[in-house]
């Protein structure tokens, strides 16, 4: 909620400033916004549906079962794939990761899960490709996935 209020606050200030300075330009702001919104709405709704489907099919309990509490390379791999494919809000993801850690999962597994979860977006990739181009999106997600492993391994060593 704070997030949304902050956004509305910033934008309202911007619009007031814009309106005082130049009415015509402010109308253009709305025109640009409307055009961009209508353009990306179909894919945004599509992504939303996919996110809903994945979360519906893979609820936190299932994820926690799949990652498991064993220390092993396999659970790290599974965690990285689940992290890359799912899109879980942080208020659900971090408690889940915390409980897995306490249940015996390794730091490496948990950190690869958290890092891929936030940095690699498999379901948002079609949208990212559409807006930012195929090469950019593939490189960004692919390299983030690799970096997530390096980060996780270093964290496993240190912590």
């Amino acid at each position: 909620m704070t997030t949304i209020l902050t956004m509305y606050g910033i934008v309202s200030l911007g619009l007031i400033f814009s309106f005082v300075k130049d009415k015509n330009k402010t109308m253009k702001v709305f025109k640009v916004a409307k055009k961009a919104l209508l353009n990306s709405l179909p894919s945004l709704l599509g992504v939303l549906g996919i996110v809903g489907l994945i979360l519906g099919l893979l609820p936190p309990e299932t994820i926690s079962k799949l990652i498991g509490s064993e220390a092993g390379f396999l659970s790290t791999i599974i965690a990285s794939i689940l992290g890359a494919v799912t899109l879980i809000p942080s208020l659900i993801a971090f408690p889940l990761a915390g409980s897995l850690l306490r249940a015996g999962a390794t730091i490496t597994t948990i950190s690869v899960f958290v890092t891929t979860l936030v940095m690699v977006g498999f379901v948002t990739m079609p949208l990212e490709i559409k807006i930012l181009g195929k090469k950019f999106a593939l490189l960004r997600n692919g390299l983030s996935f690799i970096i997530a492993f390096i980060i996780a391994i270093i964290m496993g060593f240190i912590l």
Binding site: I10, G14, K28, V29, K31, V32, A36
Partner: peptide
């Protein structure tokens, strides 16, 4: 979405 796209417009 509305504030985000208006911000982009701005």
């Amino acid at each position: 979405l509305p504030p985000v796209f208006i911000l982009m417009g701005l």
